[in-house]
Each structure stands twice: as C-alpha cells, then as structure tokens.
Amino acid sequence: MAVIGAVALLLSLTLLIPGDPATVLLGPRATPEAVAALNAQMGLDLPLPARLAQFLAHGLQGDLGKDVLSGRSVSHMLVEALPNTALLAFSSIFLAILLGVPLGAISALRPGGVIDQGVAFISVGFVSAPSFVSSIFLLLVFALWLNWFPVLGAGEAGAPLDQLWHVVLPAVALAITWVGYIARLLRSSLLEVLNEPYIRTMRAYGVRETVVTMKYALKPACVPTLAVLGMGVGELLGGAVFAEVIFNRPGLGSLIYGAIEERNYPVVQGGVLVIVILFVLTNLLVELSYAWIDPRVRVQIELRPEPRA
C-alpha cells in the first residue's frame, strides 16, 4: 500500500509541477506534433487514475517504460545505477557505524568528561556539515592536493578494488553527518540503558563495567540507533544526490535528479518506485532485526496473545 500510495502521490505531483515535459525535452525547435507524440509516449495525455493503473500494470511485469530521450529501458537504467548507489549507501553507513558507535559508547561511559565533551563538539560539527561542503573539501584535499583518490566516477565495472577506491571519498562525505547522529543517539540511549535495574543488578553482582557496557547494555541501546540507521540507508539509497553529482558517480540519486530537471517522467517514476520499495524493505528488515538484537522484544513477540477464533 505504501508503494502504491507513494507512486500515486508522485503522479499527482507531476500534474502540479510547472513546465511541459515535452517542451523541456524537445527544446525550442520542436514541432507541435512532436510535442504531442512525446506527451503520448510519456502517458501524459491520460487521466491520472489511468496513468497510475498503466504504470502499476506495466511495473508488475518489470516494464517501467522507456527513457523518452534515449529510448533506453528505464528498468535497465535502474539496474545499472542501483549497484553504485547501494555500494555508496552501505559503505557510508558502514563507516558511520564504525566511527559513530565507538564514539557514542566512549562518551556514555564518562558523561560530562573531557572525551564526552570533545565527542559532542565533533558530533555537532559533523551533523551540521552540509554534505556538498564536505564533498568539495574532501575532493580538494584527498584528490587534488594529496592525489590519493580519484575525482570522477564509480570505477571500472567488474573491478571491485577500483570501485572501492572510487567510493572512499563520497562514502566519507556522506558518512560524516551520520557519524555525528549515531554518536549522539547511541550516547543518550546507552546512558538510559545503563540506568536500567538489570544493569544495576549486574553491577551489584560484581560484573566488570566493560562487560556490562559492551555485552549487556550496548545491544539494547543500539535499537533506537538501528531505527535511525534504517531510515538512513533508505534515504541514502535514494537521496545521495549531492555526493553523486559532485563526485560524478552514476547512481539512482543523480539519475532521478537529472530526470526531474528534464521532466523525464518515466525515469522519475521508475526511480521513485525503486526507492520506495527499497525504503520499505530496509525498514522491514530493521524492524525484524530488533528481535534479534534485543531479547526483550523477542519475548514480547512470543508472549503476544493468540487472536480468538
């Protein structure tokens, strides 16, 4: 339902956006006949319910239409773009976890201490850094001055090391904001968990503080962070536009961004459909993982009363 709702909303929005797509695409020299033909090709001559029904009916068969400019299959374009975006999204979230979780945990261990204050300062700085600023900064330092990383592209297809080399800077640029978020979020939820009665009991039994924190407190404290990460992965899968544009990476974000500029609606619709599906799937996986991470959630699910017949 979420997918259908999002697609319906998108199609409605295309009616409100000023600008005739055919005119934008064909330019000043287009004949009225060519404009009409292109509108028909994009299905813009149909009423909204018919467009939605047509789009979903074709979409269910894997046919998301054709790019109106090049005539290429939208499904094919999305399949080409998705791996680059997925690599970027997961790399940045991985980096964010790698840095954000230890920073948050360290802060929570000594709240108000020098380390906590230092981490707070860094986190707020990271959270407020716009990704296009950090992208340009990283490019200037690591690609231009130090020449350690490339500026353009996603690397050679079929060359994983080259692709990893190309993803480092954009992933760092995107991860920076998330490092701050995760560190702040984990710190507060960890502080909350560390005040739970079962933690006090463990301490009373003389369990070492490191073991209490790392083994028994960290996992449940990660649940709220995980929820945010789920949203983050979903957002990055579709919204890594700045990084993709600045690092010139072909991906879903830059594909949809360019298509919106050109009013290339079949590409916009197909791209948004894929993003909505990915978003829903990611959040479903995240919700399922709560039970795996926090035994209390698992117990709650197991104790749920059976519905009456």
Binding site: I136, A143, N147, V151, L152, I246, F247, N248
Partner: peptide
C-alpha cells in the same frame, strides 16, 4: 567524453589530470 554537470567537480578533475 565524461558528462560532468558540476563545474567545480570538472575543474578539480581537470587539475587532478583526470580530464
């Protein structure tokens, strides 16, 4: 031919020797 929309990126790529 490398399609690069962002002028700043293209300038950095030129200076870095990629174009």
């Amino acid at each position: 031919g490398k399609p690069i929309k962002e002028q700043k990126t293209a300038d950095i790529a030129f200076k870095a020797g990629e174009i």
